[in-house]
Design a protein around this nucleic acid. Structure first.
Lengths: 221, 221
DNA sequence: GCAGTACCGGAAAATGAATTTCCGGTTAGT
DNA sequence: ACTAACCGGAAATTCATTTTCCGGTACTGC
């Protein structure tokens, strides 16, 4: 994952490999629940490992976030493909993908290149572009079949997914919310995305630069 | 505003009074544009005054935020009353209020009492409760007239307004987004809130404790 | 005008919360 | 049993903010 074993050296120990898996699993869960700004300590706590262990496997927080993001995006692309194959119509496929994105909060993990810092790695860029293009294709279909309103595009939708509230907004101490905010808001959004849409959307649709800019400033990534 | 002039003392100087007005104006604008977490320095820059001046008039940041929040909520209550009087039906009044809330981002300024810190001042509590109750009444009407879906309540709606993206998500340097994210997302939400609603909303509606908890953890206030 | 107080600006100190380092103590694997 | 890998988590560092402080400025009443 980030650790290329030099050809002459000893192989990575089995427990270490397992720990990397645990870290990624914990990171996914924590990011989905509370947003990607949670501290590494939080991830460590959830994974049952120490912070030192995380830094042994990832050079810094950003690298961990990237890794998780790549996983999310690839997975979402797979869900999309499967939905297209399974579902009877484009609208059903679309809602299925949206629900998945909300579930894993994958759009929040949609890093794009930062202004004056490290570029996103090529794997991330590739996964991101692939997903965007797939989503665009799906939405095209849905719009042609007349189920998705015509005045939105993939960038709009991704940006909407991003601003869904995290699953749990608590501080770890409290019990969190009893209401499924994310789910309720997503459902309302989906109803609002149904064609034809009574409201006239203001301005023009979002663009790629808008998406990039938003993520750059919101996630610094 | 936070400075009670002791009865024997000199009255506040005219320029100082004007400065307080400037500060509140700048704070409102900046909070609406970029979210309430912006630094005091940002507010100072926008107001054309120094940070010291802000601290001369408000004991701390929290006090400034409260003051702005109270203003927003009172104003929103007024807009609501006016909308009720002017508009032909409850739905029009409802959308008008929603647009106003999105505009000033008043819901983001909906502070409620924090767990183990200073309570919100009584003026804030009163303004908050009044607005919530007014909104509840309006939504009741809209639901009875059959225009607003039946499975949402005022807490749900406020929580949705909260998670609208800020008007501008930039860092001050960049040009910001060219798209009106807030407006587009609000419109989609409004379409989704129209009765009857095709999607079944998951779980049950939000409650007052949910609202309180959300604000406590999100705004620490 | 002048005195005198209120006021202002913004550099600097205090805070706070996070990331990242470091190293003594463990453990897997041969 | 030996050793390189590995782990935990306290401590150091970093970074962005809030908040203080005080020399200098400018209202205001006389």
């Amino acid at each position: 994952m980030s650790e290329v074993v030099p050809s002459g050296a000893r192989p990575q120990r089995a427990d270490a490999r397992e720990n990397v898996r645990q870290i990624l699993r914990a990171a996914r869960a924590v990011f989905a629940d509370r947003g990607y700004e949670v501290s590494i300590e939080e991830v460590a706590r959830r994974s049952g490992l120490g912070m030192g262990t995380i830094y042994r496997h990832f050079p810094n927080k950003r690298a961990l976030v990237e890794e998780v993001a790549i996983g999310h995006m690839r997975e979402t692309s797979e869900v999309l493909a499967r939905a297209l194959a399974d579902e009877p119509d484009a609208w059903s496929a679309f809602t299925r993908v949206m629900r998945h994105m909300a579930e894993v909060r994958s759009s929040q993990m949609f890093p794009v290149s930062r202004r004056r810092t490290t570029e996103s790695g090529p794997a991330l860029v590739a996964a991101r572009d692939a997903l965007l293009s797939d989503l665009d294709g799906l939405m095209d279909r849905a719009q042609r079949e007349g189920s998705l309103r015509a005045d939105v595009n993939a960038y709009d939708v991704v940006l909407m997914m991003v601003s869904l509230p995290p699953r749990i907004a608590d501080d770890g101490a409290g019990g969190g919310l009893s209401v499924d905010l994310t789910g309720r808001q997503l459902s309302v959004l989906l109803d609002g995305l149904r064609a034809p849409g009574a409201e006239q959307l203001p301005g023009s649709a979002a663009t790629r630069p808008d998406l990039d800019e938003f993520f750059r400033t919101r996630f610094g990534i």
